[in-house]
Design a binder for these strands. Structure first.
Lengths: 214, 214
DNA sequence: TTACGATTGAAACGGCTGTTTGAAACCATT
DNA sequence: AATGGTTTCAAACAGCCGTTTCAATCGTAA
């Protein structure tokens, strides 16, 4: 049941895509390692592109659902929500994804990173589309937590997403808890300093911040 | 002179690699768009893999050199260096790379991201090797700026590198100055809060930071 | 047991890949 | 003008790609 042909193809494809990339991974390699016939991919998933999309859909949908559920809980607990808990709802489900089924490490996140490096492709756009409402919800929550006007909060959130994605792809999914704690804290400090202090730098200094390059 | 065959191949390859990925880009496409003969790639660069390495070497070497030069200046200006200026030496040369030759946007950074998504490959390891001494130098400088013991400062630096890489690949290289300013500030706040406050959270809160997932 | 849709299997399809080859063209030096 | 090394060119090489085909097999419902 859980080892149906279609599922075995998905598992193997996810692993190989993450390790080697989409184009570098061939259907023959997938079907050989999954121990299924070559034609099974086209029979069960339609095409290689459809297989790639299926690999993402299987992980992204539960991830974003859990993120939004946790965000709802945080928002229900108090109206100016606690910034730490908002970021934790964003970060923790993603970091846990790396350790979920069988210690796969940051494999899927490496994959997500790959897909997102494929800018200007249909895959990238599809993922962004599926992500957009999640990010909008979190941006609103952060704004409310900071009780500040919009500003360019989206940029700071992108900083955080970048740190999260990079970290997940780099670390092997070990010590998820401490990594999540460190990242939540890092992001909170950055967001608070960037927004609630207006335009002035958070720490005064004698040297000019930005000198012209030589 | 500047449009030598080898250089035209490098320029075209960099653009196509960033837009489509390494495996998805064919030598025939590169040579067609560069208006050179197919065999020219193997003649001037040896192989496709060697061409990929050459594309990276051309950008990475000046980038890391400029970073280290600026870091030296900052360190020479005062012994506990100003954290903002250290991060600025790390971030600004990278962000400027996107706007250098002809408004190429974050193209090379998208490429770097791609290479770094290719974990466990020789290319990734080669890049990490070339980066390691740079990162070590910056970690030392940050440690001195914060006047703190080692801790897991490397992790915080990875957060910052992730935010930088993600941001560069996402934004088209526009408003480099304001992006750099925002990122320096974001990173300084995160580093200061994470390290100089020890292990206690920077902001007290009534809710537990990390609840068990449902 | 028979019948039938769902699944698997082996083989082949056209097409594109990176690389190699050897002749032609170029260009500075004798 | 003749030479010899460097670079370009068109063509071909073997090999792998995603997909399709159609017969063989399986599992279940009549």
């Amino acid at each position: 049941m859980s080892d149906s042909t279609a599922d075995r193809i998905l598992d193997t494809a996810e692993r190989l895509f993450a390790d080697q990339g989409f184009h570098a991974t061939t259907l023959r390699q997938i079907t050989r390692e999954a121990d299924v016939n070559l034609a099974a991919v086209n029979y069960h998933h339609g095409s290689k592109d459809a297989l790639i999309a299926a690999v993402f859909r299987r992980r992204l949908e539960p991830l974003n659902r859990e993120r939004l559920e946790r965000l709802e809980e945080v928002l229900a607990d108090g109206d100016p929500p606690v910034l730490e808990r908002v970021l934790e709802a964003l970060i923790h489900p993603a970091l846990r994804l790396g350790t979920q089924p069988a210690g796969d490490g940051g494999r899927f996140m490496r994959l997500l990173m790959r897909a997102w490096a494929e800018n200007a492709t249909r895959l990238h756009q599809a993922i962004r589309r599926e992500y957009s409402h999640v990010m909008r919800a979190f941006a609103d929550a952060v704004r409310r937590a900071l009780q500040d006007e919009p500003a360019d909060l989206r940029q700071q959130l992108d900083f955080l997403i970048g740190a999260l994605t990079y970290t997940m792809a780099e670390t092997g999914g070990d010590d998820v808890e401490s990594t999540a704690r460190a990242l939540v804290r890092f992001g909170c400090a950055g967001l608070r300093d960037s927004l609630d202090a207006g335009d002035a730098p958070g720490v005064r200094q004698t040297e000019p911040l930005m000198e012209n390059a030589r």
